[in-house]
């Protein structure tokens, strides 16, 4: 009963797998941000490569479609000089656990060193980490409605580049919290990093009541929720939520929770606007806000590469440290 040992950390508390923000100490999160800061400079050079993971093989296992996350993971791996293999595996062929495990066994046979996994089921990355051999690191690139930890860390990185001190910040996350793995990771990251206040804003159908136990304040009115906020994080609204089951229509959602310039004026004047992408213009966010001065959406994409380089080098580094010790 209760919790097992944290599978994400090695016995000497280094990051071995990166599966969820929940359960990680603040020091690891800060280390990721600091490491990413160094890698961000690599991206600004003419030659954008470092030889840290030369000779290592990284397999991107995408059981669910993604363009942005997949390409930034690929770029990050290549900039670390690793060999990268990307596999897009349709979920229909692997809806059963045994084939997930079969896929895994096949890839192990190819002597890879790291799996980057995206899957439609919550807990898929944990499952793979538990069943992979000891020398393999697993990085979660989004599992069901559970977590998307690298996205959250690139968001933290972006916030830190704009505001030095997390402890003074009020941050609002707006939209479909219920189904958002990004939001879960962000909430854990923000509370672990010690922000002043995290608010979640949306209709009751998209915010479970129990969410308050994660240490956030619930708001059901966009303007009230945005008052005095430093950072506004908009979430993507999936099309299938708008068919009347959770929300009556796109139009009504935009009227109530869509971020317009007028609504944004409730937040602090220097507040930044973030979005994990891809954005639905005119649904969760107005074009003039997405393109506006306060938007940092494209910076997030750029920062994603540095943060993913940091996570990959740290998780692979945990094995090197273990090898050096022995």
């Amino acid at each position: 009963m209760g919790y097992r040992n944290n599978v994400q950390l090695t016995p000497d508390k280094r990051l071995k797998h990166f599966l969820s923000i929940e359960g990680l100490p603040r020091s690891i999160l800060v280390e990721i941000l600091d490491t990413a800061e160094n890698f961000a400079q690599v991206g600004e050079r003419a030659i954008k490569k470092v030889p840290i993971l030369r000779g290592k093989t990284i397999v991107n296992l995408f059981f669910e479609n993604s363009t942005r996350t997949r390409t930034t993971f690929e770029l990050a791996a290549k900039r670390l000089s690793a060999d990268v293999l990307t596999m897009n595996i349709s979920t229909s062929a692997t809806s059963k656990g045994e084939s997930l495990l079969d896929t895994l066994n096949n890839l192990e046979a190819m002597q890879s060193d790291m799996f980057v996994v995206r899957h439609a089921s919550s807990g898929a990355a944990y499952f793979i980490a538990k069943h992979a051999p000891d020398h393999i690191s697993v990085v979660n690139a989004g599992d069901g409605c559970h977590e998307h930890p690298t996205q959250a860390m690139l968001d933290m990185f972006t916030i830190r580049r704009h505001f030095a001190d997390f402890s003074k910040l009020k941050i609002a996350i707006v939209g479909d919290l219920h189904h958002s793995r990004v939001a879960r990771s962000q909430i854990h990251a923000l509370t672990t990093l010690g922000v002043n206040e995290v608010r979640v804003i949306g209709p009751n159908t998209l915010i479970p009541n129990e969410m308050s136990k994660l240490g956030v304040h619930l708001y059901h009115d966009l303007c009230k929720g945005l008052r005095d906020v430093d950072v506004v994080i908009m979430l993507r609204l999936q099309k299938e939520r708008m068919d009347g089951g959770f929300l009556p229509s796109e139009k009504e959602y935009f009227q109530t929770f869509g971020l317009t310039e007028q609504k944004l004026s409730c937040a602090k004047p220097n507040a930044i606007v973030m979005h994990p992408g891809p954005i639905n213009r005119g649904v969760e966010i107005a074009s003039e806000v997405a393109n506006g001065k306060q938007s940092v959406i494209l910076q997030q994409v750029t920062n994603g590469i540095a943060v993913r380089m940091a996570v990959m080098s740290m998780t692979m580094g945990s094995h090197l440290a273990a090898e050096n010790k022995s």
Binding site: S95, K96, G97, L101, S121
Partner: peptide, 11 residues
């Protein structure tokens, strides 16, 4: 064994 070898929702 396979019935439990998978993600939580698939088991």
């Amino acid at each position: 064994e396979d019935a439990k070898l998978g993600t939580f929702s698939d088991a």
